[in-house]
């Protein structure tokens, strides 16, 4: 196993995306400023996950109320469980406020109160 032999296959990128989206502090995956963070696959792409030469890049929109440290910690824990030993670079692109979340419909756990 080399350092870059992590989620190289398409199924593993999907698993990483799913695990990250399931974190309580994560509202959704994010493609970054210019949607540059994505893994391109035949016929589709997985937004927010990209395999770099020195690790995995994951970009998310966090839930307001969680600290950035906590968001990054949860994402790292989720990804490390699937790809042990690889550095996980986390980008927090935005925070979703509670009222924005309700406008989009419930998508998991609620952020903590004020």
């Amino acid at each position: 196993m080399t350092a870059t032999s992590g989620p190289a296959s398409t199924g593993e990128v999907d698993k990483v995306a799913e695990a990250v989206a399931g974190c309580p502090a994560v509202a959704r995956l994010s493609g970054g400023r210019a949607r540059e963070v994505a893994t391109y696959l035949p016929g589709r792409s997985v937004t927010g996950v990209k395999v770099l030469s020195d690790g995995i890049l994951v970009h998310v929109v966090g839930r307001y109320g969680f600290s950035v440290d906590e968001i990054a910690r949860q994402v790292r824990t989720a990804v490390t469980a699937l790809a042990p030993g690889l550095p996980v670079h986390v980008g927090v692109d935005d925070l979703q406020l509670a009222e924005e979340a309700s406008a989009e419909g419930p998508a998991g756990g609620l952020p903590p109160g004020p």
């Binding site: 400023r33 690790g55 995995i56 966090g62 307001y64 950035v68 440290d69 990054a72 790292r76 490390t80 550095p87 996980v88 670079h89 986390v90 980008g91 927090v92 692109d93 935005d94 925070l95 406020l97």
Partner: peptide
């Protein structure tokens, strides 16, 4: 950190 970088976008700081 050794486990990877964390980057924070402007929008995060603006919203907070």
């Amino acid at each position: 950190s050794s486990q990877g970088r964390t980057s924070i976008a402007d929008a995060v700081v603006q919203k907070v």
